[in-house]
Amino acid sequence: MPRQSTPTVGGDEQQARDTVIVGFTVYAPSGTDWRTTDRVRIRGEVCEITGEPGDWGQSPFTGTRGPMQFAADRVTG
């Protein structure tokens, strides 16, 4: 799922350049192992996982497992 964010104006990421952060919220199959140090290819672009991946866990109603969710960003500029 595409998402967009921008760095804080005047922050370290934006000194003397235009920084663009393109990001995605990824829903991966349950049981997959993703870490904050991993990179993932989305639409042909290499993105870094940002933040801690979240496991939706098991439904108390059906017993099925939900997806793994994580944010992935590509920073340019």
Results as ranks from 00 to 15, higher is better:
22 V>A: 11
54 G>T: 00
67 P>T: 03
20 V>A: 12
34 W>A: 03
51 G>I: 06
18 D>F: 14
17 R>T: 13
69 Q>E: 03
56 W>E: 10
60 P>L: 12
55 D>Y: 04
34 W>N: 02
62 T>I: 14
32 T>M: 08
33 D>L: 12
30 S>Y: 03
49 I>G: 04
33 D>I: 11
67 P>S: 07
63 G>L: 15
48 E>H: 12
37 T>N: 10
33 D>E: 12
32 T>I: 05
66 G>I: 09
24 F>G: 00
36 T>D: 13
58 Q>F: 13
72 A>K: 00
47 C>G: 01
60 P>F: 13
31 G>C: 09
40 V>Q: 02
24 F>K: 05
55 D>F: 01
41 R>Q: 15
39 R>V: 04
25 T>C: 01
73 D>F: 05
20 V>W: 11
43 R>P: 06
28 A>N: 06
16 A>L: 13
38 D>S: 07
44 G>N: 10
27 Y>G: 04
42 I>R: 06
22 V>G: 08
22 V>N: 12
49 I>S: 03
56 W>H: 11
34 W>P: 03
23 G>I: 01
29 P>G: 09
37 T>L: 09
46 V>I: 15
47 C>H: 03
43 R>H: 12
23 G>Y: 01
28 A>M: 06
66 G>A: 10
45 E>D: 13
67 P>N: 06
65 R>N: 07
61 F>E: 13
42 I>Y: 04
70 F>I: 00
46 V>W: 09
35 R>S: 15
67 P>K: 02
39 R>M: 08
34 W>Y: 10
37 T>P: 04
16 A>Q: 13
30 S>P: 00
46 V>D: 13
32 T>Y: 08
39 R>I: 03
25 T>P: 02
52 E>G: 01
72 A>S: 08
49 I>L: 05
56 W>K: 09
20 V>N: 13
54 G>Q: 03
64 T>Y: 13
16 A>M: 13
72 A>V: 02
17 R>G: 12
27 Y>T: 07
16 A>P: 06
18 D>P: 09
74 R>L: 10
19 T>M: 10
42 I>A: 07
73 D>A: 07
33 D>Y: 09
64 T>C: 15
29 P>D: 08
60 P>H: 15
35 R>N: 15
18 D>G: 15
